[in-house]
C-alpha cells in the first residue's frame, strides 16, 4: 500500500519537469517539423502541406552546399585541433612540473569568455588589411620579422573558415585539456610503473597504455566539441559578420527565416541541424547510460 503511495508521490513530484520538458522541448520540435513540411512564407502562419519539398530544395541549393562544406571544414579543423592541442597540453602538465596550476588556469581561462567577446577580439587580431592599414596579428608578425606568417585569415578563399576554427580552438582546447588531465590523473600510477619495468619508453606508454585507457575521455571530448561545431553561429557572426564565403547552416537559417521570412525552409534547416546533432549525441547518451547502469 505505502509502496503505491510512494510511487504516486514520485510521479507527482517529477511531473512538473516532465510536463515542461514535453511542452518546451518535444512539442516545439514537433511543431518545427510540421512547419518544415509546410509552405509557410511571410508573417502569416500557413500550414499548407508541402511534403518534403523544403528539404529537397535545400539539398539542391548551392548556398546550402557551401554551408555543408564549411561545416565539415570547421568541424574537422576545430575538433582535431582542439583534441590534439588539449591532449598535448594535458600530457605536458601531467609531468609534475612547477607552476602547473598557473598554466592550467591560464589554458582553461578562455572558456570563461563568451563567444561574442572571443569573436570581437579575434576579429581585430585576424584583421586582413594590408599595407599601411596592417593591424592585429599581421602587424605583430611584421614587427617581429615574420612577414611570411602574415595572411588573409578568414578572407582566404575556400579555407577562410579554418581561421574561425582557430579562434574556436583558442577557446575550447583548454577545456579539452581539463578533460584529458582528469582522465590522466585517474589512471593508476602502477600501470605506468609496470610498463616502465617491462622496458617501455614514454612514447610506447602513452601510445599503448594511456591512450586506450583514455578512450572514454576521447569520446566525450569528440561529442562535446562535435555538437558545438555543428551549431556554430555567434563566433562566425562576431568575427566576420554574415557573409556568404563563411556561411554555415545556422546563419542560413537565421537569414532565410528572419530576413527572408521563409519560415518553412528555416524550420527545415533547423530540423536538419537537430538530426545531425542527434546522430552524434544519441549513441553517446545510450553508451553513457549503459555504462552507468553497469557500474
Amino acid at each position: 500500500m505505502s509502496r503505491d503511495k510512494d510511487r504516486f508521490l514520485n510521479i507527482l513530484l517529477i511531473s512538473p519537469s516532465i510536463i515542461a520538458v514535453f511542452i518546451f522541448v518535444y512539442a516545439f520540435i514537433g511543431w518545427s517539423v510540421r512547419v518544415s513540411l509546410s509552405k509557410w512564407k511571410g508573417l502569416n502562419a500557413d500550414y499548407t502541406w508541402n511534403s518534403i519539398n523544403n528539404y529537397l530544395e535545400l539539398f539542391k541549393d548551392p548556398r546550402f552546399h557551401v554551408d555543408i562544406r564549411n561545416t565539415l571544414i570547421f568541424t574537422g579543423v576545430f575538433v582535431i585541433g582542439s583534441m590534439l592541442l588539449g591532449f598535448l597540453l594535458a600530457v605536458m602538465l601531467d609531468q609534475g612540473l612547477k607552476g602547473e596550476g598557473f598554466f592550467r588556469s591560464l589554458f582553461l581561462f578562455p572558456m570563461a569568455i563568451s563567444y561574442i567577446v572571443t569573436g570581437v577580439v579575434w576579429r581585430w587580431l585576424m584583421n586582413p588589411a594590408t599595407g599601411s592599414r596592417t593591424s592585429g596579428l599581421n602587424l605583430l608578425f611584421t614587427n617581429i620579422g615574420l612577414d611570411s606568417l602574415a595572411n588573409a585569415w578568414h578572407t582566404t578563399p575556400t579555407w577562410g573558415i579554418a581561421a574561425i576554427a582557430l579562434a574556436a580552438i583558442w577557446q575550447m582546447s583548454g577545456y579539452t585539456m581539463a578533460l584529458y588531465l582528469a582522465g590522466l590523473r585517474a589512471i593508476p600510477a602502477e600501470l605506468k610503473e609496470a610498463a616502465q619495468i617491462d622496458g617501455a619508453n614514454e612514447l610506447q606508454i602513452y601510445r599503448h597504455i594511456m591512450l586506450p585507457l583514455l578512450s572514454p575521455v576521447t569520446l566525450s571530448a569528440l561529442i562535446i566539441l562535435g555538437h558545438m561545431s555543428l551549431k556554430v553561429f555567434d563566433l562566425i557572426v562576431a568575427i566576420a559578420g554574415k557573409q556568404l564565403p563563411l556561411d554555415v547552416p545556422a546563419i542560413y537559417m537565421w537569414q532565410i527565416t528572419f530576413d527572408g521570412l521563409f519560415y518553412g525552409k528555416g524550420a527545415a534547416i533547423g530540423i536538419i541541424l537537430l538530426v545531425s546533432v542527434a546522430i552524434l549525441i544519441i549513441p553517446y547518451i545510450r553508451y553513457t547510460l549503459k555504462t552507468e547502469a553497469q557500474s
Binding site: 598535448l88 605536458m92 609531468q95 612540473l97 598554466f103 578562455p110 569568455i113 581585430w124 596579428l137 583548454g174
Partner: peptide, 23 residues
C-alpha cells in the same frame, strides 16, 4: 630532463595570453 617542457608551455601561454592582452 623535463625542464625543456617549459618552452612549449610558455609558447602556448603566449598564444592564450595574446587575445587576453588585447581584451
Amino acid at each position: 630532463g623535463k625542464t625543456w617542457l617549459y618552452i612549449p608551455l610558455i609558447l602556448m601561454a603566449v598564444f592564450y595570453l595574446l587575445p587576453m592582452y588585447v581584451m
